[in-house]
Design a protein around this nucleic acid. Structure first.
Length: 104
DNA sequence: ACCATGACTCCAT
DNA sequence: CATGGAGCCATGG
């Protein structure tokens, strides 16, 4: 590839697959995990995902417990559905309840 | 090289 | 708790 972030794509996707059922990761956590500087970069990388049923990019949430706007496959509503399927619950404001289930 | 944009975060108000 | 601004780093025009 000709851009710098592309070399982080596979590491990020691999990490996402290791996140257990019922748990999520924040953008900054994923960034730190693969050695990237800015959480913004993770957003860019997640947009490179073309296989939502193989790469669980829906497991990445914002640090405030809410979902990012730009989930590529049906928006944050679809992302919320996927998370709820794992048992993650949301309040009426769209914020994750018991936002302690982060991976370390 | 300049500028706008983005699936973000932190901190102040 | 909601909002705004600054910081952030890479991409693309």
């Amino acid at each position: 590839m000709k851009n710098k972030l592309s070399i982080f794509i596979e590491p990020v996707f691999s990490f996402l697959k290791t996140i257990p059922m019922g748990m999520v990761a924040t953008y900054s956590l994923v960034a730190k995990e693969v050695g990237l500087k800015s959480p913004r970069n993770i957003g860019w990388i997640l947009k490179q995902n073309n296989t939502p049923d193989i790469i669980p990019c829906y497991k990445v949430v914002r640090s405030n417990g809410k979902l990012a706007e730009g989930y590529k496959f049906g928006g944050k509503e679809e992302q919320q559905r996927r998370l709820e399927n794992e048992g993650i619950r949301f309040n009426e404001k769209g914020k994750i309840i018991n936002f302690k289930n982060l991976v370390t």
